[in-house]
Design a protein around this nucleic acid. Structure first.
Lengths: 194, 194
DNA sequence: GCGTTAGTCGACACGTTGTCGTGTATCTAT
DNA sequence: ATAGATACACGACAACGTGTCGACTAACGC
């Protein structure tokens, strides 16, 4: 119990790390579809048979990485309600979101930039639209709805992701706080989620 | 000049059509990445060598189809300004947009649904954000900007695409006019593009 | 009708994929 | 520290998709 085992076998963790980083490096050069398992293994200096002992194919590897990034986001954000908001102070939830993206910049550049990773964008969009929908439901429980919550939620989710992508593409010229502020400013006061 | 040649060789047009429809049919079943040229040719009943005489690979085929859909959208929408708008009458530009998507439902289901076609979404997002940005620039030429036009434009573009995707996924429960109305209603009056 | 061109056919070398069995290094638990 | 389990490396393998070739046939446009 002297050294915390962190988790599992050291060799396994190393292999996973090597393969993931090799994939990321490869994706920075050419699109995912035309990266072969051989390419990944060669760069990772891992034998190809070893790859197949861990993943079914390259999609499984990508899926796991995506999943981990997604879980990290959930862990950071689950205790932050997106509703707490005053006009001058940008809501901590959205600030945190931008910080999270900045922190994992390399991954999000691949996921949201260029042709993007459709699968991850879908995951993220569903998560955000759920978050927004829940907030909307809490806010006007008795208030008359001018339009379906679902539309509003998907509208916001798409907008957020698009702005995130723009932010990354511009090499993050504004701070997370500024971006969070602008993001909600777009929506206008009194239009919900304010 | 009796029968209008439409364009070019009949055989070529037939082959293009067959290959494109085969690809669409195939994409309705399995994701694009794991569709082989052989699959497409088999379904299209076209010899594989013929495929390679027209396209470099399956990506080229997809690209051409995308391009044609995109050009069709431009042709329909270029003479419709997105700005002409009164609160009760939804703007013709957005109504037209929804109608266009409904008209080519099968393609847009593939492009925006599931994992989507990242490349096309990127094309569409850039087009929409340009459109929005131009409108914004015209509207308040002298008005003080509360936030960068670029952010606003990308915000709107992402929102529109996301709502379109939702609409298709729900099997289009609302009319194009209703959707266009809701789309702008989200944004709230006085928040630009109104 | 005649020349041109698209399409078919079979075959080829090449790279990638996924899966073996065997041997070796390295981790975990006692 | 040692013994047993397990991850990894290695080489080989068949199966498949890819992209290209030359020669033959069918269909189109003028």
């Amino acid at each position: 119990m002297k050294s915390s085992p962190e988790q599992g076998d050291l060799r396994v963790r190393r292999t996973h790390k090597l393969l993931w980083e090799a994939l990321m490096a490869e994706m920075a050069v050419r699109p995912f579809e035309q990266i072969s398992v051989s390419d990944i293994c060669e760069r990772a200096m891992v034998h190809r048979t070893t790859f197949y002992k861990h993943y079914e194919d390259k999609y499984a590897l990508l899926e796991q990485g995506m999943r981990q990034m997604y879980d990290a986001l959930l862990a950071e954000a689950e205790h932050l309600p997106p509703s707490a908001y005053s006009v001058e102070q940008p809501p901590p939830y959205f600030v945190r979101l931008f910080e999270h993206v900045a922190q994992h910049e390399r991954f999000y550049r691949l996921a949201l930039g260029g042709d993007g990773i459709g699968r991850f964008q879908r995951l993220l969009r569903n998560y955000l639209s759920d978050k927004v929908a829940n907030t909307l439901r809490e806010e006007h429980t008795a208030g008359a709805l001018q339009f379906p919550i679902a539309i509003h939620a998907h509208y916001m989710a798409g907008a957020i992701i698009s702005v995130l992508a723009w932010w990354l593409e511009q090499d993050m010229p504004l701070s997370s706080r500024e971006m969070a502020h602008y993001l909600l400013a777009q929506h206008g006061p009194g239009a919900g989620l304010s």
